[in-house]
Nucleic acid binder design. Structure first.
Length: 292
DNA sequence: AACCGCAACAACCGCAAAGGG
DNA sequence: TCCCTTTGCGGTTGTTGCGGT
């Protein structure tokens, strides 16, 4: 695991929020060279950050395949159930939530779900996870009160979006996502599956418990030199962009299209993360000499 | 209009595990 | 086997924006 060839110049690392320029540098570097030794990334990408910070930024914000925006009812239920079952094993919980990072799950739990669960348990009869789940999908008051301030900063959804989500979530609670009518799915997914601003938003995204075990969690984007290809972490089925994708999806697609380095990510309207993996795998297999 | 409190999210910190020399 | 470095994870803190007063 050690990477002694990575020179580590002593420097005062920048802290705090990332600027768009820094994001761009990191994104460009990883698109060009693939994932490698994080400690070497800042110097090579021209960033005054430490490797750890770069890694976090990539995993939690820049990595393709990330969902942004509201947690769906299903996701919420998964978090509640798994938290009850596993405890605060956020990385493991995140594995069951495609496109969510452990940090996101953790934040969501700490800022919202925990209170709700405690509130529920504070009642006469502490509720089992199953009861909590059922409560979460059936109690309108619980849904309506949630997230009155949600996504106040740097986020892609608004309280209006949230209202929409509440409505669609009520529907999705009754009908499995995959069985919903196309329009309904598209509407819901176009709200919930908002990718990073540079990656296209998929329309058809397989939500299942079979997301690769090494996928959703932050840490599992294995550096190529450690035997894994980036694409291994990014599987899932994607279809054409919806005919009525929301503004954000359009922007995302446009951004991706503008981002030629993403080599075929956009343009066709299809986005297959396995192919994405091929892309990254290709980077790693051919550019290891650049990494080290 | 200014201030304050709260909520949500981003990012940092510290520790432990993993792996190479 | 030990040491050192990197990575991964979870807890915590910092920042930002909104709503209420």
């Amino acid at each position: 695991m050690g990477c002694r060839s990575c020179e580590k110049p002593k420097m005062n690392y920048r802290k705090g929020l990332w600027s768009p320029e820094e994001d761009q540098r990191l994104r460009d570097y990883i698109l060009k060279h693939g994932l490698g030794c994080w400690s070497a990334v800042p110097a090579k990408a021209g960033l005054q950050r430490n490797g750890k910070s770069c890694r976090l930024r990539w995993i939690n914000y820049l990595r393709p395949g990330l969902k942004r925006g509201m947690f769906s009812q299903e996701e919420e239920d998964v978090v509640i159930n798994l938290q009850a079952k596993l405890g605060n094993k956020w990385s493991q919980i995140a594995m069951h939530l495609p496109g969510r990072t452990d940090n996101e799950v953790k934040n969501y739990w700490n800022s919202y779900l925990k209170k709700r669960v405690m509130q529920a348990q504070g009642g006469a009869n502490p509720k089992s996870p199953a009861e909590l789940t059922s409560m979460s999908t059936t109690d309108p008051s619980m849904s309506v009160q949630r997230h009155q301030h949600h996504h106040s900063s740097g986020s892609t959804t608004t309280s209006h979006d949230h209202d929409t989500n509440i409505k669609t979530n009520a529907l999705s609670a009754a009908v499995p996502l995959t069985q919903q009518p196309f329009d309904q799915q598209a509407q819901q997914q176009s709200k919930n599956f908002v990718f990073s601003d540079w990656a296209p938003a998929p329309e058809s995204y397989t939500v299942s418990a079979h997301w690769p075990a090494s996928t959703a969690s932050s840490g599992n984007v294995t550096p190529s030199h450690c035997g894994g290809a980036f694409g291994d972490q990014m599987s899932g089925s994607y279809g054409a962009l919806p005919p009525h994708q929301d503004h954000q999806s359009s922007v995302a697609a446009a951004a991706a299209a503008a981002h030629g380095a993403a080599a075929g990510i956009a343009g066709s309207g299809y986005f297959d993360l396995l192919n994405m993996g091929d892309i990254y795998g290709g980077f790693s297999s051919t550019n290891d000499d650049l990494l080290f």
